[in-house]
Design a protein around this nucleic acid. Sequence first.
DNA 1: TTTGTTTGTCTATTGAATAAACAAAGTTTA
DNA 2: TAAACTTTGTTTATTCAATAGACAAACAAA
Lengths: 391, 391
Amino acid sequence: MQITWNQQLVKKENKAIVLNLIMQNSPISRADAAQMSGLNKGTVSSLVSELLEEQLIYESGPGESSGGRRPVLLLFNQKAGYSIGIDLGVNYIFGVLTDLQGEIVVEKSVVNNHPEYSNTLEQVNKVINALIKAAPPSPYGVVGIGIGAPGVVNKEGVILLAPNLGWKNVSLKKDIESTFNIPVIVENEANAGAYGEKRYGVGKEFDNLIYVSVGIGIGSGIILNGELYKGINGYSGEVGHMSIDVNGPRCRCGNFGCWELYASEKALLNKAKEIGLDLKENHTLSDIIDLARNENPAALALLKEIGKKLGQGMINIIHTFNPQQIIIGNKLAAVQTWIAPYVQEVIDEYTLPYHQMDIQVNFSDLSLPASALGVAAFTTENFLKSQLQVQ
Amino acid sequence: MQITWNQQLVKKENKAIVLNLIMQNSPISRADAAQMSGLNKGTVSSLVSELLEEQLIYESGPGESSGGRRPVLLLFNQKAGYSIGIDLGVNYIFGVLTDLQGEIVVEKSVVNNHPEYSNTLEQVNKVINALIKAAPPSPYGVVGIGIGAPGVVNKEGVILLAPNLGWKNVSLKKDIESTFNIPVIVENEANAGAYGEKRYGVGKEFDNLIYVSVGIGIGSGIILNGELYKGINGYSGEVGHMSIDVNGPRCRCGNFGCWELYASEKALLNKAKEIGLDLKENHTLSDIIDLARNENPAALALLKEIGKKLGQGMINIIHTFNPQQIIIGNKLAAVQTWIAPYVQEVIDEYTLPYHQMDIQVNFSDLSLPASALGVAAFTTENFLKSQLQVQ
DNA sequence: TTTGTTTGTCTATTGAATAAACAAAGTTTA
DNA sequence: TAAACTTTGTTTATTCAATAGACAAACAAA
């Protein structure tokens, strides 16, 4: 049943609108906030009073006069609290402590070569502890912990299956909440990455974007009309197992010709081995990058092929979603230089004409930990939403 | 800028909630409506008074007492007005006149073997005229006209490209609005069909469903969280040009191995010709159905193959969206008997385990004109929304 | 017949918004 | 330099859509 409206809910929603205005437009005056929101200036004045009392915003020295009295400027108090975001990789754990506006205050990374659950949980707890200790004093403290995990995560935050970690049915959320007594969100890493790019990365300007996470496998996060779309059970975005070659090789999932057999980090490494690239045992993506930097012809040809295959699958996504933007993130963003031209070439040549209009293809900024920032942002938003609840 | 809340908007939204409750739960008492909505019974009483005044609902004979006073029952006045829905086919025009609850009052179909724009416009106008004349007298009259068209339709209702009609850049919406002075909505036929199934068809119980329209080509309508998702320009759902065989034959769109080369009506007819089915010149889907009914082995084998190919593409959709339901509609719903087992077989065998949970595959009910009903529903909803605006 | 229950109407109250008056603090003009 | 005007922010009276609860009507149960 759709929730009905009453005065309490009206006030809460309008207060959230004013707070969001101040967050996005710092510094801003009450008069401007009233003008931009459409709310009466008396209403804005009283809502702002409450936000000041709650220390979510603060006033700063006067602004410039535009002919009359100088305005008092309001700014979002991003240091009112902190969020933790954890990117749970196959062999690493990366964590950030961010303020309420997503600015990274501290980051910590540890290698984790033994991804068994109990060992990983211990490492994660250590990282979280270190970040909590590093948080400056603030009115609200650490308001939430977000975890981006590779694999199938349901809407209750249970990791049902993480093949690359060897996990099944783990309640990481419950385990961390009981340890720290702080709200925890567990989310699929591609979903988290999509949200991180939407909030802080190359996806900032767009409300309809698909983030393609190209790591060992391929996953995707789907932002539609500004919101993360997760499907009925939270399992949307498994585009790595979208078949682009139904007569092709069998995938580990049982289907044939899945996209991630052609265009993932694993595909790249397998192909490198197959064509006998001059590489050592247990070579990595970095080794191929080194070869490419040195203009090794076979390495360049291999990356060209990967770029084309990546582009082919992206065309399917563009035809299905008609998005504003597609972002390529995770490991293969590192080879942007060598694959981007071929990705674009394939898209230019084979995408339906109307679907090519207004579509932007971007690679993730390598310095932006999108997944960690994405889950931290989820926890910050949940905190602010509950904070505005009328007491 | 997000719209702010005030008393006027609060009342409008709550009134819409009450009206929707009455629509979905006819007949219902004020007391039940208050209980179900959470609104105060005095509030419901006053909102109901207005709806009665506006003739959108009516009272009926008393209901059963549950121990005290008998309730007065309220029903939605579906005959308060009428909507027209037009399904614009490649060689036919099919129209329905529905009441405000989508019940078909009159339907009219004409053959149209000359799909040039001016001729088609004339035929469409004739159908609309006939339906308007057939509409019973009512308080609001014909409140809107919806047109479902095959091809690329933008958000302003301009048909940018309809390859199977040979049209480019036609403002059918403006032309009909100027003729009839009634609000007109033009929508892609797959989008319309998805909404028709969601409202009145096999999709009624689901909020996340994908309607795959398998006609000459393949298109899809995407319902996410109860709403039609159209993409940034209105072009989402072009799954017919999702490549499932990148090394396959070239499609008319320029790409390779598109789904609709394997699993559409056109693919079926082409393949029938190719394998030398015992058919006359200009054979149709009906001819193949006749052969299948007579258990012609080649026809049955062909349909089996088509079923498998249909299933293969559907797996990609299931992995991408994690929907509750996929509906197969339009022309190939007619061969459900002969393809459904193979569709299901492929999906059972090759879909990721978690994505198979909670997914339901259905064929459209052939007697339900989903596309026409879908666009009629759009116009009805727009009318009711504007009607509830505070005057 | 009296008492209790349910439904629906009516009235007083609440409070979050708006409209507008007022105050404060600036700039501009005569 | 003082008066007039402008802009920003605060305060107050008003509006009205909701709620709470009293009351009325019409039933069922004891």
